[in-house]
Simulated scan of single mutants.
Amino acid sequence: MATAQSPTLDVAVIIPTMRRPEALARALHSIFGQQDVAGRLREIVVVDNDPRATARDTVAELADTSPVPLIYRHEPRPGVATARNAALAATRAPLIAFLDDDEAALSTWLSALLAAQAETGADVVFGPIQGRVPSGLGWKTPYLERFFGRLGPEATGLIDHAYGCGNSLMVRATALPGPAPFDAASDQSGGEDDALFSALEQRGGRFGWAADAWVEEFAPSHRATLRYALSRAFAYGQSPPQIAWRERKPARVAYWMLVGAAQTIAWGLASLALTLVANPRRAETLDRAARGLGKVFWIQGLEPRFYGAKELARLERISPSAA
């Protein structure tokens, strides 16, 4: 077990999960093997977002092999923001690292995040992601690997924009204010991290990049499809005008809608041309057209549903007798 250190150095790793026992075990083993974090890793918090608490046994089986306390919390209300808020309530660590349950961290992941935060003084530090998809996807494979991956600058340093919450390190006092910093209104569609980071930027917060903090993200077969990726791209496009609307900036909303219209037309025509000749690059242009379309049709209520109740319903169809 880690010995007590100055609380200013302590970090907790948070992993929300919903009915993915094998993926969760893989994610946890990757945290157990982290190097050069002795005395800094306080605990690992797993939040089980399945009403049936199906992750309980996985956590119990691995608890004795964890190098630090492995905390289990059950949050039966399905939703990505609600799960993350529940995890934060289970730890008082001043530094919070987020890892998704479909990710596995390289052994130097956490030390690289901590070093980048110390170097940059950023409120949130992000790291790169290598996307992994099932075999047999043909021409779609390179696009989907990029879609589920994440690249950034070659060197560690400050950056001028945020990425997603997965594979990140946050200074709790500045980046995660209050008992429930993630907006539960985004439970089903996602985008709660976009709102969080936009608010942080408005407060003068800073973002950093840890070039060596690699994780792998393993896309399950039901997500490693062009249809799913384009639906997500549409939702990503919705985020900028939705944030502008919440911030009561109608001119900014109009700006994003105009940008989206131009993107939809330009990339839509490019997609049509590439589709006619079966060029594999059409996946990239379709992605950009979908993001543009999302900026046009951004109104609340039109968001695709990827998390929470919809994901639970899908899992129930696959394994209705899971206990």
Rank of each mutant, 00 (worst) to 15 (best):
D57E: 15
P76R: 00
P94L: 07
I71E: 02
L144P: 04
D102T: 08
T120A: 01
L106F: 14
Q35T: 14
G79E: 04
T17W: 00
A27K: 02
D48P: 03
D100S: 14
A93L: 06
A116P: 06
D36M: 13
A81R: 10
N85R: 02
A27W: 08
V68C: 11
F98C: 09
P16G: 09
P94M: 07
V37Y: 00
A90N: 00
A116E: 11
E43W: 02
Y72D: 04
R73M: 11
R42M: 12
E75C: 09
D123M: 09
T156L: 03
R132Y: 09
V68E: 13
G131A: 08
I44C: 06
P76G: 05
T91F: 10
Q117A: 14
A83Y: 12
D102K: 05
V133D: 03
G121T: 07
A116M: 03
I71P: 02
D48H: 02
R42L: 14
Y72P: 12
H29F: 05
I129E: 10
P51N: 09
L24W: 00
L99P: 07
Q117L: 05
D50M: 04
G138M: 10
E103H: 14
P142D: 08
P76L: 06
V59K: 04
L137V: 12
L158K: 14
G149T: 01
E154I: 09
D100M: 12
V47M: 09
R150P: 10
E103G: 08
G33Q: 13
R52G: 14
S107P: 13
F126R: 11
G157K: 01
I129N: 10
F98K: 03
R73S: 12
R26C: 01
